[in-house]
Design a protein around this nucleic acid. Structure first.
Lengths: 341, 341
DNA sequence: CGTTTTTCCGTAAACGTTTACGAGAACACA
DNA sequence: TGTGTTCTCGTAAACGTTTACGGAAAAACG
């Protein structure tokens, strides 16, 4: 069943070294013998043992994605990541790499899990998501010199690593622009607490756009909440109690928006009629909610592909002839106008 | 950085054999030296190289989950699997196993990918989902004797492997019972084409329940469609054109239900008012759709845990003292009554 | 004190690869 | 013929573990 390189060698009456070289396409092997080796490999159904390769080469040929479900609605998780993972895996597979999804318990900070992956050398590189403003995972990985890339940026300073992020700043500004154009002047912003970086970017865009329109930023219209439905439910009433009630709310997260709409409904306020609601990262939920939520949509699958590519470009073993490069990109979010604003 | 067992041995002036035995908790090592080894391991930040262990032991200490996104709505994928994966990974981690998610391209039958995983010995066992009525993956794995378990059953006969499935038959029957109790007699059933096994189970339950109520099964009220939104959209009008129009529809899939509701809306038929709609596998979309869809909900995270446990119980290396056991379970779906019926 | 048992540890092989090194054969060239 | 070059391949070490085996020292026992 498990045929090894020795079996091939014995079968062909040549040395294992030659077999290996033939299989790996090295130059110093006769075209004839190479063909014979290849044929025999097919015949004996040979495929290399990964553990053996890994041990010898010091590379595992796999990339770890640290998937971190958020605390909260346990029943269903992050639909966000599936198409992203599809793109990711597709590109990695093209380079012969596996994708290992390391899933932490919800709410765990995954620092420990990350250590384990790195120290047991289970992956050649890791991919981080949900980057925080100051991110200790990034500190750790740069300190120990382990290759990685991130979905999302971080302020964690001066370090060179590939990252792909969405332009939350522009989305925040765009959302404001649109609402202002529709006559709104009192626009609330609700974003996740913790120090997830995209919450800051979003708020920056929001603030700048307001100023650009000559609208004063009212702190009473800005609130942080736990990044799930309960968080949105809990925090939304707070901005509705501002002295100057908002006529529009921008949610920085779909789950929070759903919780917020629930709170609004209980207050007798109808999104799309009594108040305008915009959400920054679109998910299928936004589309099917009633009213359908106007939202900003990322191109998830292409992002997965691209981030894989950027990671590969940063790895000496996979970089092109010009050597490894650190690429950082910020991708736009596309406005999907629906019925809630 | 990467301290090996040799480093420990040199540091303590003992042999690597003793170090290994101490680390692995074998009996034949002095309590003193064991403690010294453990201390040194902590001090030198040692953790074993997985490739080395794998090679020697012939085990990778990781389980592969073959995640197969369905063709169709690429924008967002299977929210279904995330909580399932959380439970899975949680249990596997407790036994020192990693979870490798092997993601195929949508629509690809993953037979090839499966071969690769098996032949390169990248995992000690695999987990299959979306089981089909006749499933060639199961044939292949049993033939080569590779350990596996499935989420879902299959008719593929006579083989012994752990499986955990949902009771689609009962859910189908329950759905009918409920609708009949509410006065419906003409109940349509829409399920996925392909030969996904749960579609058959569902239909069995549906048929049996109808007969039990003395209602004749009308073939014009049963339709197959592609298992995504477009499929539901396309196929739903067909049952609505039956001579005896249905007053209720049971969808066997959430995405198809959403597409179906879209089609209904375009025909001026309002779910929850003009027609009753029930969906068999609940997702967050059902909850947020308007009207909120009555649906049958699985306990995804516990299912993940349990399937991991069942898989482990079937593996000699992890089974308890009574030896490996093949466990098969069928879990109930919980009815979540909402507004659509 | 002699013999047997137990405790503990070192030695070395093995897992399946890749690769540096060197050597033989064939060939080219003067 | 002698010398140098090019092709091709075999040898053997190495990656980091685990583990079967045997042996020395200590303990137990008569």
């Amino acid at each position: 069943m498990a045929s090894s390189i020795h079996d091939l060698a014995r079968h062909l009456n040549i040395s294992i070294g030659t077999v290996s070289r033939a299989l790996n396409g090295r130059a110093d092997v006769n075209a004839d013998t190479r063909q014979r080796v290849l044929d025999a490999a097919k015949e004996l159904n040979y495929s290399p043992n990964q553990s053996g390769r890994s041990l010898r080469q010091g590379a595992t040929h796999s990339i770890a994605f640290m998937l971190q479900p958020h605390p909260g609605d346990q029943q269903y998780g992050e639909p966000f990541f599936i198409p992203f993972l599809i793109g990711l895996q597709g590109r990695l597979a093209e380079s012969g790499l596996d994708l290992t999804v390391v899933m932490g318990a919800p709410g765990d900070y995954q620092q420990e899990r990350l250590r384990r992956v790195v120290e047991t050398r289970r992956a050649d590189a890791v991919l981080l998501a949900w980057t925080r403003r100051e991110d200790e995972r990034i500190d750790y990985l740069t300190e120990v010199g382990f290759p990685f890339a991130t979905l999302g940026r971080s302020r964690t300073g001066g370090k060179a690593y590939p990252s792909l992020d969405l332009d939350f700043e522009k989305a925040g500004a765009d959302a404001v622009d649109r609402l202002v154009a529709r006559g709104h002047r009192r626009i609330a912003a609700i974003r996740p607490s913790l120090n997830l970086n995209f919450g800051y970017l979003f708020l920056d865009g929001y603030r700048k756009a307001l100023k650009r329109h000559g609208i004063e930023v009212d702190p009473a219209l800005i609130a942080d909440g736990f990044i799930n439905e309960a968080g949105g439910y809990q925090v939304t009433p707070r901005v509705m109690l501002a002295k100057n009630k908002p006529t529009a709310i921008i949610f920085n997260n779909d789950a929070m928006a759903l919780g917020g709409c629930k709170a609004l409904a209980e207050m007798g306020i109808r999104p799309g009629q009594d108040i305008a609601v915009t959400v920054i990262v679109d998910t299928p939920l936004c589309r099917y909610f009633s009213p359908a939520l106007t939202a900003f949509r990322p191109a998830l699958e292409p992002m997965g592909r691209r981030l894989a590519e950027m990671l590969l470009a940063s790895l000496p073993a996979f970089a092109g002839p010009e050597g490894p490069r650190i690429i950082r990109e910020v991708w736009p979010l596309e406005l999907i106008a629906r019925d809630s604003d």
